[in-house]
Nucleic acid binder design. Sequence first.
DNA 1: CTTTTTACTTGACACTGTGTCAATTGACAT
DNA 2: ATGTCAATTGACACAGTGTCAAGTAAAAAG
Lengths: 197, 197
Amino acid sequence: MSSENIETRIRILDATVRMLEEHRGRGVRMADIAKTAGISRQAVYLHFASRAELLEATTRYRDELLDLDRRLAPSRAATSGVERLALYIDFWGHYIPEIYGVGKALLLAQDTDEAAASAWKDRMLALRDGCRAAIEALHSDGTLAPEWTREKATDALWTMLLLPNWEHLTIDCGWSTQQYIRWTKTLAMRAFVEESA
Amino acid sequence: MSSENIETRIRILDATVRMLEEHRGRGVRMADIAKTAGISRQAVYLHFASRAELLEATTRYRDELLDLDRRLAPSRAATSGVERLALYIDFWGHYIPEIYGVGKALLLAQDTDEAAASAWKDRMLALRDGCRAAIEALHSDGTLAPEWTREKATDALWTMLLLPNWEHLTIDCGWSTQQYIRWTKTLAMRAFVEESA
DNA sequence: CTTTTTACTTGACACTGTGTCAATTGACAT
DNA sequence: ATGTCAATTGACACAGTGTCAAGTAAAAAG
């Protein structure tokens, strides 16, 4: 599956990203992707066994291109829990619009496709790790609001950052990325940080 | 379309509700619904023109059975904004698990089906009305936190109550309905009510 | 300069699920 | 007995995914 020409593989991945971002993850078929990549539909299957596998590979490819580690560096370098939480939300707020199309496609494919469902779950667990790290940092600082266990706070922050929330606020309600980030930060601070008044 | 036997129509709707709740809205086909209702697949089309129309009718049917007006009465009778907000979240928290399957099916059908998308949008606008009423009540009391416009606060509350948030917390994270309601209330109070400390 | 290999193409086809159509059955009403 | 109505049966069109076999064109290997 991987012995084939790497350039073609990348052309397919680029085409997939382009199509999914353009159409917000909806109604993009294998044939459309092939056409955009300038190859036959069947050639796509020489590189990716199924639509789900292509979507999964596309998310990984996207993350590479976006240089995830560099983007995460600021929040990882934070010197306090509050700062870490704020910087992680900053990271996420700028990251999510760039992966929206691919993520949405993966999300929608869950309906029929078990493999797509588990691929998405994987991505979400990575998000949870970031959330846990931020909550853990608050906890070590002693600034995690006392009503929370670390576990529950992680789940709650994780939920706040879910893709549909961003989608709804920006696409349906017309908020800007900046407004989304500000509101999410405010909410998280009031929810998780002690005496945030 | 409506001249047909009403009993059969109801049998179909009951079967649809049952199947969707049972399978959490995923992978339920017209043939499955027909089989559950004890009729032929084609007979379903004598009552509903398409899958989207059936899903739409099913949500309305579900709301009837659940006696939405009775359930909404407490929040409508609230004497303060804070009370109204709390009671509306109570209502929603108990309502959402009962419509989850149908809602999820409608949500997933958005991928391919334009009609399903607009049916879901309709349901969501009804939810927004409830949110606006609660925010409006806070505003008249003078207890809406000053950083919010009524419009933005409505959008934000609306987003908090989105189905995927409930889904994630209860189904993925294992929270109980009570925990979901408590957390949502706490969050909403801290977000929208002035000096909630 | 032929032969082999590699990457891809073309076209056909199986499968699933939605939605349509035509002919038929069985019950109930007039 | 006749007509009407609800539903049945079986066939089919259509879209999209995934598979398969045969062919092609160019690069690599002898």
